[in-house]
């Protein structure tokens, strides 16, 4: 049965993510893109509708198995939008959107079915996909290219843990400006250590502090620049654990918080309450207390959450390859990336 077989590609991706074979979300993005390329060029589909259904099943599978994973579903959602657009331009029909305007001007015949099979659809979608791949590969550099607009001389910048995007950003700025960076070590993963070592290699004056010193240092920090795992639909973040406290301290001292993020991290999902089990995931407590600690281990409970929810009012700016945006504009970016009907898949 071709339907069941064809899901093996996504299952492989899911299991790779679960086994932590990817160190960066960028790698996941590339893999997803490859998967989609395979699907579109070699998959068994005749009309746009069938293709969309194939993609939708995959999105659902990922969301079932990895509720926190956002990169892969986001890219697939974007492809759905691409498919719709290509279909519309090929069949010269306009889509019924969701806006007041559309509400008022729609006619009964406007409901699009996407079921016509068009000849050039496959190639046009593939073209679009290649464009998207190029965009993906260059987005890191594009973000880094904006570095000089945001960092001036003699600034003290605070960053948390390790983010490849932030690293590139700071290194790019360091080529022309002299500034200091304070790296928060980010226990229990201590990713900040690698980040600091790498920044120091590029001749940036780096100081490493423990998580506990953030509030103390914040009064002298000029900017906080961080990466994130996901950007939620309301402009909030799902970021590494501990970043909420950093953002609160920054708010207290009125320090701007800038979040560098690629477009595939923007997720159209609203989170009702961040205590919801699907929002956060807990990692092994061995990083917090080693198993060798002793017999009291069975008398205590240890929590080691991986993510943190940061509400949108604590974020000042989102920097993506298209430029900077305020958190209140995220809804617009989302509507450009994904189609309204695909928000909920």
């Amino acid at each position: 049965m071709p339907e069941i077989e064809s899901l093996s590609d996504i299952s492989r991706l899911i299991s790779d993510i679960q086994h932590k074979k990817f160190t960066r979300s960028y790698d996941i993005a590339l893999r997803t893109e490859e998967l989609l390329q395979e699907l579109i060029s070699k998959g068994h589909w005749k009309s746009a509708k069938e293709l969309m259904n194939l993609v939708k099943t995959r999105i659902q599978l990922v969301r079932e198995n990895l509720p926190q994973e956002a990169t892969a579903p986001n890219i697939m959602r974007h492809i759905l939008k691409v498919i719709r657009e290509e279909y519309q331009s090929a069949s010269k029909k306009k889509d019924e959107g969701q806006s007041l305007h559309e509400l008022v001007t729609s006619t009964p015949s406007n409901v699009l079915d996407y079921s016509d099979s068009l000849i050039n659809l496959r190639s046009s979608i593939l073209d679009h996909l290649t464009e998207y791949k190029v965009e993906l590969e260059s987005s890191s550099d594009n973000i880094a290219a904006q570095a000089l607009e945001h960092i001036h001389t003699n600034e003290i910048i605070l960053t948390v843990g390790k983010s490849n995007t932030v690293e590139k950003f700071l290194k790019r700025a360091a080529k022309d400006r002299i500034f200091n960076v304070i790296v928060v070590e980010g226990a229990p993963l201590y990713a900040g250590h690698t980040m600091a070592a790498s920044l120091a290699k590029s001749n940036i004056q780096t100081t490493v502090i423990a998580d506990s010193a953030v509030f103390a240092m914040m009064s002298r920090v000029n900017k906080v620049i961080i990466g994130t795992h996901t950007v939620l639909a309301n402009g909030g973040l799902r970021a590494a654990s501990g970043i909420h406290a950093v953002a609160l301290a920054a708010k207290h001292y009125s320090v701007p918080v800038m979040v560098l993020s690629h477009m595939y991290k923007f997720c159209p999902i609203y989170v009702g309450s961040h205590n919801h089990e699907a929002f956060n995931v807990c990692a092994s407590p061995a990083n917090v207390i080693p198993y060798a600690f002793g017999p009291i281990l069975d008398k205590i409970e240890v929590n080691n959450p991986v993510y943190d929810y940061v509400p949108p009012e604590l974020v000042t700016l989102f920097i993506s390859h298209q430029g900077g945006n305020s958190p209140s504009y995220v809804y617009r970016l989302l509507s450009e990336l994904y189609h309204q009907d695909d928000y909920d898949i």
């Binding site: 229990p188 998580d211 506990s212 654990s241 501990g242 406290a245 917090v288 409970e301 080691n304 943190d308």
Partner: peptide, 13 residues
């Protein structure tokens, strides 16, 4: 009855 966390998990609990 005790639970033990690192400082980064304070927002979580």
């Amino acid at each position: 009855e005790c639970t033990y966390i690192f400082l980064n998990a304070v927002s979580y609990v």
